[in-house]
């Protein structure tokens, strides 16, 4: 296929708007032809929008004690409560909190922690990966050895360790507020290695290309070349990893919260909700566990599938 020339963009697009251009692109075309990608994107979008606009959508504010009625506790889904006659879509928990609303608010925390952790890991990983790849020598050796060592510990273990240390040094009264941030740092720190590895690999390829030589030639400094020239060219694999990491980070957050070292019960994430819910699993109140768990599954699965598709779509060798 050496001889084939790809269709020229200008012939296809003319001078239409940027949006039209994007919709015409090969990327958009591939996306439309992949049903799995379309469905997972739709599910992700619905869940993210639900979390984002939780205060507008949720019928109740689960964190407002004034709106809670203990009499509503343990309402079954779609069934009027025996005492108050109130009906809840997905039922209520032991304290009478609407499960649907707690899921929406819980997802907010899950997504916030997941996204922030990935962002943190991404910034750290990209910086260290670029440095290791571009500078080389001892810088590279040290960064990559640290990464290797980090990889030998399971990430949950690393997260728990950091969580434990943070818990030890924060005063009790701040612990609940700190918990979220500690979670983000803990998950982010256990996740930067793969970003660093991928960025370093891509940087090693890019830095030997002649456009980098051209930039060095005119006296551009190392940081300028790394940020302005190399960084934009190593971002596509980063995007793929970031998407898959987001799914993993949400699960990690849920795991930590489930184990009781994560989000506090006053600010429950999906993981916390599942932990609370499992107490009632065998007493017949299945919905308190089931709906948060199903939401977590749907969220993680669709984000992960989206990442998988993105990896295939951005990898020219698979096309």
């Amino acid at each position: 296929m050496v001889d084939m020339r790809l269709p020229p963009e200008e012939l296809v697009t003319g001078d239409r708007s940027r949006l039209a251009l994007a919709l015409q692109s090969d990327f958009a075309y591939q996306f439309r032809r992949a049903p799995v990608a379309v469905v997972s994107f739709a599910v992700t979008l619905v869940l993210v929008l639900g979390a984002l606009f939780a205060p507008l959508i949720a019928p109740f504010d689960p964190f407002d004690p004034a709106s809670l009625n203990l009499m509503n506790g343990f309402s079954r889904p779609m069934t009027p409560n025996a005492f108050t006659g109130d009906s809840f879509w997905l039922g209520t928990d032991d304290q009478g909190r609407d499960v649907f609303s707690t899921i929406l608010y819980g997802m907010r925390i899950s997504l916030f922690v997941g996204a922030s952790a990935v962002l943190f890991a991404m910034v750290l990983g990209i910086t260290l990966g670029l440095l290791a790849g571009y500078v080389g020598g001892w810088t590279e050796t040290i960064i990559m050895r640290v990464a290797d060592v980090q990889l030998t510990f399971p990430s949950i273990l690393v997260a728990m360790l950091i969580f434990g240390i943070a818990k030890g040094i924060t005063p009790v009264e701040y612990r609940d507020q700190m918990a979220i941030w500690v979670l983000i740092i803990a998950i982010g720190l256990s996740d930067w290695v793969q970003f660093a590895r991928v960025v370093r690999g891509a940087t090693l390829v890019e830095k030997n290309k002649e456009y980098v030589a051209a930039a060095r030639l005119i006296g551009r400094s190392g940081p300028a070349i790394m940020v302005r020239h190399i960084l934009p060219n190593v971002l596509s694999p980063v995007l793929v990893i970031a998407t898959i990491s987001l799914a993993l980070a949400i699960i990690a957050e849920a795991t930590l919260s489930f184990l009781g070292v994560g989000a506090p019960a006053t600010k429950p994430s999906l993981g916390t909700l599942i932990r609370i819910g499992q107490d009632f699993m065998f007493s017949g109140e299945w919905w308190i566990l089931f709906f948060p768990a199903a939401t977590l599954l749907a969220l993680a699965l669709s984000v992960n599938l989206l990442g998988d598709w993105l990896r295939d779509a951005l990898n020219p060798r698979l096309r």
Partner: peptide, 26 residues
Amino acid sequence: MIFQDPYASLNPRWRVRDIIAEPVAA
């Protein structure tokens, strides 16, 4: 300097305007 590989010697993420002006802009 002018390089051999015309595909590797232009940064694919930059617009031609910025590529050409870089030696002066720098």
